[in-house]
Nucleic acid binder design. Structure first.
Lengths: 115, 115
DNA sequence: ATTTAACATCGCAATATTACGATAATATAA
DNA sequence: TTATATTATCGTAATATTGCGATGTTAAAT
């Protein structure tokens, strides 16, 4: 049977879900690649958040790290300050805590009614 | 410059990260698609966990739902009991809580040292 | 003004993911 | 046995993601 609406294969049908479901999925996506988890951990460990030895630390190319940083940044998880030609990355704690809370709420709500 | 090791493009280099980083990423991946979040939520809402109206509820094809269920199941998040030809899905709460804890610990640890 | 250093972006190649219909498998019902 | 209903799997098509080197961009250093 054919769908009247043109189905674009391989594309998540984001429009069929309520907002809060899409939110959780989108947040989870940020953490769904080990490089991004490692980057977040590394940034958090650095005192005074002076970065980009990240490239050497993680072991991916500079362009790849930069791409992952963009994903993290687009999620609103970074606060950057410029120090000359260096960029000093730092985690946006408020946003980070918001994500933590969204996850936690989802887990608690889901557990609530279950067998 | 060329890498001595044959680089397989498009593949996550999972082997360069510590276990606990990969664990978090893999868990996050389960929740990184809205269909899977929606499925988990739906299963949790049903009393006595009698399922598979999921297909109609979510609005994806039966085969697609089945695939997503497989991902959720492979993560150890489902407990299934058979009721005749129906399968009665239910969330594995212990495992679910484990995931919640892993996320929470990651968030707390990461927040700890930050600016 | 040139060079250098730190990042970002572009373009490409390859795998991964998502979606569907069709089909297979299994168990009850007729 | 045959039909029906439920779920899983296969095959395919298309987008998404991941990775790299090369190239831009910008600001300090020479």
């Amino acid at each position: 049977m054919l769908n009247i609406y043109s189905i674009i294969m391989g594309v998540s049908k984001v429009e069929i879900y309520p907002q809060h479901i899409n939110d959780i999925a989108q947040i989870a996506k940020v953490f769904s690649h080990p490089a991004r988890v490692a980057i977040l951990q590394y940034i958090s460990i650095q005192e005074s958040c002076i970065c980009n030895d990240i490239v050497e630390e993680i072991g991916l190319s500079q362009s790849t790290i930069s791409q992952h940083l963009k994903v993290i940044n687009n999620a609103g998880l970074l606060q950057g300050t410029f120090e000359g030609k260096k960029i000093c990355y730092c985690i946006n704690i408020e946003r980070f805590e918001m994500f933590q809370k969204i996850f936690d709420t989802f887990f608690n709500r889901t557990k609530q009614n279950c067998c």
